[in-house]
Simulated assay, not measured.
Amino acid sequence: MHRHDETCYAGAADGTRRSLLKSAMGVAAFAAVGGVPWLLPGLAQAAALTKAQRDAMTPDQVIAMLKEGNERFRAGKMQGHDYLAQKRASASGQYPAAVILSCIDSRAPAEIILDAGIGDTFNARVAGNIANDDLLGSLEFACAVAGAKLALVMGHTACGAIKGAIDGAKLGNLTGLLDKIKPAVAATQFNGERTSKNGAFVDAVAATNVRQTVEEIRRRSDVLAGLEKDGKIKIVGSMYQLVGGKVEFYA
């Protein structure tokens, strides 16, 4: 290597070291004031949320972070999660910022499409993202006991449970579950073919079902409704688009 090349190489190395040092100092300063790892795109999220970080956040800030996470997911620029570090950091306690009630569909894993890590969110999954007694109790635990700031109901496009409710499908215990979705079918205003073969109608019913679930949570849980009235949490609906990957928030 020529001396000029060596000088250039050394200069580049010094520049890299300076950049890394600046990044490390920035992260340290951010953490010192209660910064949240989700707000550092492009850097590895090495640890789970702390109580101080979570408690300093407002429900609107939690929504904003989930939106940013979804944008990273859609852009293919997700954080470099160190899941082992997150596991270790959360082993002695958990301080999730949100609880997400979503569908069991294998194509809609909430943590992934919102680019969240271990310890960041509670996740409750049931076909058709309905709210029965047990799930309401789980949401109450997440918010009233564990301190989550957001209860997010997430539906998705092309939902099989929605199609089953439209068709009036009957199969063991699934029959009773689909009966809970049928009110959304009847309540959906739609000009066109009202069948499970019409994807637009299926998605319209799914959106109605999300909104009805949000209202059912408020109606059937005095605990959660009270927390929302006091401004301590928000109860919000959303829809995940299987094509394109966008999560639309109804907030």
Rank of each mutant, 00 (worst) to 15 (best):
G231P: 10
V223L: 02
N209F: 09
E228S: 07
I181S: 02
R194E: 06
T208K: 09
R211H: 01
V214H: 01
A200I: 08
V247C: 05
L227C: 06
K232P: 01
D203Q: 05
Q241M: 13
L242C: 08
G226F: 06
N198A: 10
E215W: 01
E216G: 11
M239Y: 00
A204I: 08
Q212I: 02
G199C: 03
V205S: 07
G237Q: 13
F190H: 05
K229S: 14
D179K: 07
T188D: 11
Q241L: 12
K180N: 07
K182S: 12
A225Q: 09
E216H: 09
A184D: 11
V214C: 03
G244W: 04
G226T: 06
R220E: 15
G245K: 05
L242P: 01
L224V: 10
S238H: 08
I217W: 01
G226K: 05
A200D: 15
Q241E: 14
A186C: 04
V243C: 00
Q241G: 13
N191K: 14
I235D: 11
A200W: 03
R220Q: 13
A186L: 10
D179T: 04
Q212G: 12
R219K: 15
D230Y: 02
D203M: 06
G226Q: 07
V214M: 02
V243K: 12
R218F: 05
G199F: 04
G226I: 07
A186I: 05
V202C: 13
